[in-house]
Amino acid sequence: MKVKFGRSLAIAITIGTGLLVLANFFVRNEFLRRVQQTLLDWALILAAVALLLGAVNVVATHLRKIRGRRPGWVYSLFLLAALGTVVLLGFLDPRGVASPAVSWVFLYVHVPLQATIFALTAFFIASAAYRAFRVRSVDSFIMLVAGIIVLLGQVPLGQAIWDRIAAAKDWILAYPSTGGARGIILGVALGTILTGLRVLLGIDRPHVK
């Protein structure tokens, strides 16, 4: 009985808050606008708490790994050390994220790591390109031609091969590529609206078990 009430309450909260926030998109009303703003502020606070919960989960997972001496536990030690150092540096200085120590870690540790990990994907994209662009059908041929024109249109080598390639790239990006992308965006938007309506009408209840 208790569980059933809890589920009903959760569904009522979802529908109630959802409709209140959604109403502000359709009705110009000062009271509704203030209600939406308050609900958004609360949601931001909860999202921040959810993020902290995620961080606690990361710490707990790696602590379990270290305690159990599971494979790769030494790396977990470094992960926790890095996490703890950044958090400690941030809390020791009232400026927090803007403190020089945290900025130093961000600039000289986080940024180069992130940039190099993304740069590394250039190599894997090259091997993926070989697999994706192998001409096996009309579809892959079209993708290959579009990809090569857009790629070569951005580098001097392309200009050396064909002087109109930059114009061809611009045309592809401005018309057929935009058309395809717009169709995808419209499809995604329609899908989002339908899924959202199903949740707000209580048909889908992903959060209630």
Partner: peptide
């Protein structure tokens, strides 16, 4: 449920 309601809207 609250986060889902606001997020979906």
């Amino acid at each position: 449920a609250f986060l889902l309601g606001v997020g979906v809207a």
